[in-house]
Amino acid sequence: MKTYEVPQEIQDANTLEDKLELLKHIGRSFSVYRVDCGSCNGCEIEIFAAITPMWDPERFGFKLVANPRHADILLCTGPVTRQMYYPLLRAYEATPDPKIVVALGACGVSGGIFYDAYSVLSGIDKIIPVDAYIPGCPPHPASIIYGLTTALGVMEQRLEKVSFEEEGELPSLVKDSVIGNILFERDLLVEAKKLMSYIFGRKLFDKYLAALVKSGDIKNTKATKESVTEAMKIEDDPRYAECMGILHNKIYAQYVPCEEEDKISLHRVEWSKGL
């Protein structure tokens, strides 16, 4: 599909030298014009948040302006919808040369989750030349401030392309099972994730397993019950405590036959330190 070609005179006025020259001059005072090319609004709000006193980018001379003709920097968000294609170009051509274009957010950088939909053109740089990219969905106000200060040369760029081409030795990824069957650990982790989601579930898994190992004899249901209950008592967080109990009753009991009395009572009062 044929899209916009940057006219020769704009190209000539926007060489890298020109831009670096401009950046030198606007180091402490620059005007930014926002162009929303069909973003979900998340990036707009974060820009808004970034220009409030909490972040106060006027410390670096950042100023939002109402007209592209006053702008040094175009801050573009969104995957460029068909209908915003024309206004974007109008804004681009109206901005005085040389101009810096910043693409903000996953959509602006590459189209984000919408990258191949029929009504978008997959990112600002498919239409006009872009000088700086600020990924994030949406970017944190701190990311936006970092991005702008990086573009101005105040901060250093952190990321660079990383490519690994030679494989090293693969470390052993599978730990030995505590009860001699890794299916136990597998089920345990699955259940822990169901109970407390993947982030906290992994912590829960570690906590529970540590408590189990501490009992000394994992096949001994009395010992494990005691050890897990003890761990639940000293646990600060009531949610972890109750989930350790649930794991014990549900998964451990599947692998090591338990009597009813070997199960842990889940009544909150017994260990809760109160919320």
Partner: peptide, 28 residues
């Protein structure tokens, strides 16, 4: 101005696990 063609996208590219992330991006 922000018609992004999400409904068609969801019907074609997304499965149930991914749909929620698209729906979130209806609005920021």
């Amino acid at each position: 101005y922000q018609h992004r063609g999400m409904e068609k996208l969801a019907e074609n590219r997304m499965n149930y696990d991914q749909m929620g992330y698209l729906a979130e991006r209806v609005c920021g």
